[in-house]
Design a binder for these strands. Structure first.
Length: 424
DNA sequence: TCTGGGGTCCTAGGACCC
DNA sequence: TCTGGGGTCCTAGGACCC
């Protein structure tokens, strides 16, 4: 058995909670947040969950539910959520330096060697995060990451625990695990759940007792790790510094269909620009580039989907060159006569800028000048908002831009959108 | 009318080399 | 008619996560 103490801190209904922080009148209403293009539900307050609204449910299928129950509906406001996430993580960091930011709304903490009782400490963390950010969190504690995840799940489903559950607090772990559906286990998605069910495994306890070799064979090393972690053997260490990304993508559905090459070229150029910004944010350059376009899966018209990729002559993050190659790739796959609904750009073969090998067979590459120009562009856009300066190929009208009819103000990151408190 | 986006990791299999 | 074997690298595809 390991002696580690992992805590998983998870923000409740994160995006919906962010919206509520800035508008207290939302506390008495169900709240949902929509994906890009206002397409699907991606966050729900507890009241919205109670109405039967599902994660990922297309918004238009909600019908009259919205008006009947006076549901507050928001377009996603990732600028706001990103800033709130940073605030929550800052508070958590004050309680321990050993923190892994796992996602926008989750973090693992290592609480090894704590003199306090871990659940009591977790309650203090929870109260402080709520007081300082307005975001409610749940905390699960266990000797492995997987068991901390399980504990978090139990804390969430059973409000009587006050938002904190320590897996060690229960005398019989197996009795606990027997009540949990294996489909809810971290690392078990729909495919594996079906596979396990076919083999008579329905609960987390049954999975814990499964044959190691069988699990590794059918669920890879990841499945085996989950299995061992349920048995108390820690296989997933805390990863304090996130490694640089190995792939960087920008893909979007359009707000309106695009038929023309010129329209797609604008969209691709816009996505290339954004993805290249992300490359530069982590001081990387890309060696491969892929572009894809497709029609809607749901539309009536003829379907078409295609992708093309190439190795860049020089690994780079220089937007004008990347736009050039993006356009070449688009030329290879574009076919007229289709109603395109989505496109995307994916960079891979990402390496640190300093390691980029210069290709001896291309003309001399004025890297310093390019980097200087990109730094100026990025600085301006950071200070004045995205796309304050952009490349002409990305287009001006952008009639295909995503719909965001219900976005809340960027309360915390735009001076002009600060919340106003009225005194009476 | 309207159905998300951005990642990670693992494995199998083909290409290629000696 | 017979038709090696092993290693490495790369990619596509499939699973997962939030």
């Amino acid at each position: 058995m390991s002696n580690h103490v992992f805590a998983l801190v998870d923000c409740n209904n994160f995006y919906a909670s962010c919206e509520r922080v800035f508008d207290p009148s939302l506390w008495s209403r169900p709240v949902i947040v929509l994906s890009n293009n206002d397409g699907c539900v991606i966050a729900r307050s507890n009241e919205a969950k109670a109405l039967g609204i599902k994660m990922g449910q297309p918004f238009f299928t909600l019908g009259h539910l919205v008006s009947i129950h006076n549901i507050a509906v928001f377009s996603s406001n990732f600028t706001l959520y990103g800033d709130m996430s940073r605030r929550v993580m800052d508070v958590l960091s004050m309680f321990t330096p050993d923190i892994e930011i796992y996602s926008v709304d989750e973090a693992f903490l290592a609480l090894d060697g704590l003199t306090d009782d871990p659940p009591a400490y977790a309650q203090r963390i929870r109260a402080t995060v709520y007081q300082w950010t307005g975001i409610p969190v749940g905390i699960g504690i266990g000797p492995t990451k997987t068991l901390a995840k399980v504990a978090n799940h139990i804390a969430k489903k059973n409000p009587e625990h006050g938002g904190v559950f320590d897996i060690n607090a229960h005398s019989d772990l197996d009795e606990l695990l027997d009540k949990l559906d294996v489909a809810d286990l971290w690392g078990v998605g729909p495919q594996y759940a079906r596979l396990l069910n076919r083999h008579g495994i329905y609960t987390v306890r049954q999975f814990k007792q499964a044959n190691d070799n069988w699990v590794q064979k059918h669920m890879t090393i990841c499945g085996l790790r989950a299995l061992l972690e349920l048995r108390g053997i820690s296989c997933m260490p805390l990863e304090a510094a996130p490694p640089p990304k190995k792939d960087i993508a920008c893909t979007r559905s359009f707000g309106a269909r695009i038929e023309t090459f010129q329209g797609l070229r604008e969209a691709i150029s816009t996505y290339v620009s954004r993805a290249a910004e992300k490359l530069r944010e982590q001081d990387s350059v890309a060696s491969y580039m892929q572009v894809f376009i497709r029609t809607s899966y749901f539309g009536e018209g003829p379907q078409y989907s295609n992708a093309a990729s190439l190795q860049l002559p020089v690994a780079t993050s220089y937007t004008p060159h990347l736009i050039h190659f993006g356009t070449r790739l688009l030329e290879r796959i574009y076919r007229p006569g289709y109603q395109y609904a989505k496109a995307g750009v994916i960079f891979s073969g990402i390496v640190p800028q300093e390691h980029a090998q210069l290709n001896l067979f291309v003309r001399p590459y004025p890297t310093r000048r390019y980097r200087h120009l990109m730094r100026i562009v990025d600085t301006i856009n950071q200070a004045w908002g995205r796309n304050t300066v952009q490349f002409a190929a990305a287009g001006i009208s952008k009639e295909w831009k995503m719909r965001q009819a219900r976005r809340s103000p960027r309360y915390t990151t735009r001076l002009a959108e600060l919340p106003i408190v009225k005194a009476h």
